[in-house]
Amino acid sequence: MKARAIVFRGPGVVGLDDFDVREPGPGEVLVRAHHTCISPGTELRCLAGKQPNPAPWPFIPGYAMAGEVIEAGPGARFEPGAMVYLNGTADAGRLARMWGGHASHAIAPDDSCIDIPRGVSTLEASFAHLAGIAYHGSIVSGAAPGDTVAVIGLGVLGQMCARMYALLGCRAVACDVNADRVQTARRLGTKAELVSGDLAAALGPHIPEGPDVIADVTGNARVMNDAIRIARDVPWEDAPIEPTTYVVQGSYPDVLPVPYQDAFLKQLVLKFPRDCTRGDRARVMELMAQGGFDARSWISSEESPENAEEIYRELSKPDSKQLTVVFRWT
């Protein structure tokens, strides 16, 4: 059968293409996508040709799909009709994959698929990977109930990080240079400040004693120089004061310079959460089912794949009002 996919043909070039879908083999399933969700930071970096270890052009981007099993290979644990989350197709014929998420159909090992809980739509489930990254970072940070967390950057991942820390019982204070993103965060219950110049001036008055955790979700290597200034001062004498943990939650294409002297004087603890696990994605879908958060709050729009070129162009604008977009395939 023929499947349809969004493809990146070259730097800045987005299109649609067909590929042949084979029959599922042993332990595999064929999934018909209902929704796929854009991960803006990673996918825009792929589109610019700046993602490490890139696939050859053209390739299918994306790693967040939710849909219905329509055929199962021998020994597969899912049956036709099951609603599942998966990262994307494991086989796209002549097309390369980064990671094959934005496609109408997917072949996948059944152990890579996760049951979508009752009460969670495929629109919401397609958001599970982004939410899982935020959840994973909050756990790796070591933040505990009552801790103060400074979330820097309020793109879709930063918005989710603020929510996850709040669910942990932390006090989250966030900031961004984009006024629309700040307003979105405030509307959804996050204390958020607009940075119009000095980051420390925006956040410092709200956390004068310094935060327990700084979550840098900007993906901007220059931010760390300013952000370290709000980290807690640790006295040289013996004192029961824990240094600030700096969580590098954004992703970067290459080198991330660390201002050594400032980090040294603050005795900063650096942590680099690594994406998310299958268990993280399952957990955030459980939170969705329990009403812990509504993924639709951070999905700017639901669009046809035919509009992909326009959508990626809009998301690439520095002042874009879009957080993320979900493609509807059925």
Results as ranks from 00 to 15, higher is better:
G219V: 07
Y135D: 11
Q183G: 02
M285Q: 09
D319F: 11
L44D: 07
G73Q: 13
P273D: 07
W57D: 03
L130W: 00
I299D: 01
Y246P: 07
R232K: 15
M83V: 07
V284K: 02
M98N: 04
P117M: 05
A221L: 08
P259D: 10
A5S: 09
G158C: 08
E71H: 12
A215T: 09
P259M: 12
N225E: 15
W99M: 12
L287T: 01
A200M: 12
D294L: 08
T244V: 10
F8S: 02
P235Y: 14
V151M: 02
G250R: 00
E124I: 05
L123K: 04
R283F: 13
R4I: 10
N220W: 03
P253I: 01
E303R: 15
L130N: 08
I139A: 08
S138G: 09
T122H: 11
D198R: 15
H136I: 04
L265Q: 13
L287S: 01
L95N: 04
S316M: 13
C276P: 06
L256N: 01
G88P: 11
D294N: 14
E242W: 07
A66L: 13
E209I: 03
T244Y: 06
E71M: 14
G49E: 11
D275P: 00
M1V: 10
E124Q: 15
L287Q: 08
